[in-house]
Design a protein around this nucleic acid. Sequence first.
DNA 1: TCTATTTGATAATTCATACTTATTGATTAT
DNA 2: ATAATCAATAAGTATGAATTATCAAATAGA
Lengths: 295, 295
Amino acid sequence: MNYQIELRHFIYFLAVAEELHYRKAAEKLFISQPGLSTQIKQMEEILGTQLFVRDKKKVQLTPAGAYLKKEVEFILNHLDQTKKQVKLIGSGQMGEVRIGFLGSAMQSVVPDLLLQLKEKFPGVHTTLEELSNRSQINAILADRLDLGFVRLARVPKGLEVKSVFEDTFSLVLPAGHVLDERDFKHIGQVANEDFILFSQDYSPMYYDTVLSICEDSGFVPNVSHKSVHAQTIFKLVENKLGIAIVPTTLQHGFQMKVKFIEMKNIKQRAVLSMVWKSDNRNPALQNCMDLLLKL
Amino acid sequence: MNYQIELRHFIYFLAVAEELHYRKAAEKLFISQPGLSTQIKQMEEILGTQLFVRDKKKVQLTPAGAYLKKEVEFILNHLDQTKKQVKLIGSGQMGEVRIGFLGSAMQSVVPDLLLQLKEKFPGVHTTLEELSNRSQINAILADRLDLGFVRLARVPKGLEVKSVFEDTFSLVLPAGHVLDERDFKHIGQVANEDFILFSQDYSPMYYDTVLSICEDSGFVPNVSHKSVHAQTIFKLVENKLGIAIVPTTLQHGFQMKVKFIEMKNIKQRAVLSMVWKSDNRNPALQNCMDLLLKL
DNA sequence: TCTATTTGATAATTCATACTTATTGATTAT
DNA sequence: ATAATCAATAAGTATGAATTATCAAATAGA
């Protein structure tokens, strides 16, 4: 009667919370459904709180269950990371920093940073993952990621941000476009063209900034396509399906039949920021931040 | 051979890490020393890392063990906190109650109620949304809302209603109108004026009631304008585009050049009711209702 | 050098309980 | 109506965490 919560409970709970279906969850866990039922029930008894509502053909989380789900996700992620760190420290290496980045960050600062990190802390292993702004924020909050490179004006409470690179914007035109660098005065000259932009979901800040650039020239762009890949955007421009506005450094690393016209005379900049959790417990990240904040 | 780490391991580990002495740690844990030894050993096997150095008469933490100790402390603390929170949310002392209300409820009961709620359950967070009767009912049925303040005679099955406030009706006239409070006897005196009422969609009950008030005086009102905003109605009256009949408490909170004549002698009342779902699972709402139903 | 004492690790055994299979009762779909 | 699907319950099994008993190694005191 006087049991203790165990990690097993959490893993089972998470499976049910995700599937909202006992049999499916049990299959995923490779255990029998009755076993799962009793374990969840026991868990509810230990916590003294109902976690699921099972009424007639459907399983749902209670408010307490929904809260617990978030916490359990965090705890299990943190535990995984801790296990890795323990192994690394135990084997004499220093640790791991899990880094997320927007595709557009790979052209400018991130490679530099990785080189510096490798030099100063050869023992620190880094993992890299290309993710959207939103995914990075969520991953950092859930402790699946230590450090993110995003383009965001604001971040949730509990996270710290530091701007690391300010880039001008460039107009991207098909190679044979009539407008040339010499003739270019302002963006209003291409107001009638179709625009190809990064999706608003992918980077709201980028989207807003581009709109504000156009607004400053007195027009609302006609957005014909949206994409999350620079590659795709350039390809579309190359095929004359529209023109684009992107951070200037994005021109490096792609072989495309497009021309870039840097817009130095406008005030808007593409700001790339680092984000991390104020209370991140990864000792390798501490070292990493000490280095990075000095740059 | 293929075990999993469990919280038990962490608790045992922490005891040993604190005591640096197996027998003493075992005593503290109320288990036998050999049991503790095997569990720690198993833990080291699972993690693939040595956590303690036991050489000749003394037990000490390895670097990996020292790191793990810090993390285990954090995890166990966080877990304790989470358990407490889950209990609080489960018992309704903490959580969120999503409240909808008709604009006209903001003048009378809702603010009072919120104050009382904050006082008794400081942990319960409330969200407020101004919605029409119909929108509130739909939102409650769809579980997007926990509690609504409506003016309705009937509600769909599965919902509960309780009248919370009965307001008299007032006649709203332009400031310079010939009819005065002293001269006023019955609504028939203004039978020939244009009437400005809340839309029938917005509150069918209000609309019906106003019609019945007029009917009792033997006339059918000429409705020239309809609106969903009290603000608009008063503005129209101010500009002599008609007169209105509204719940009396609506006169508070607006700065308008209109005069109110309260009609105490008629039987009709503007009834404000609470609505909620009988089988709402939100524990915070349960507490909220316990409080409210006592008033 | 010999005990006596203390340490953590083994060995053998016991016992709690997480898990299994079999079944039920309730609900929905055909 | 019949079949199918769901979670809960019941009874039995087996895994492994605990126990007791013991050991080997180290220290300290005579």
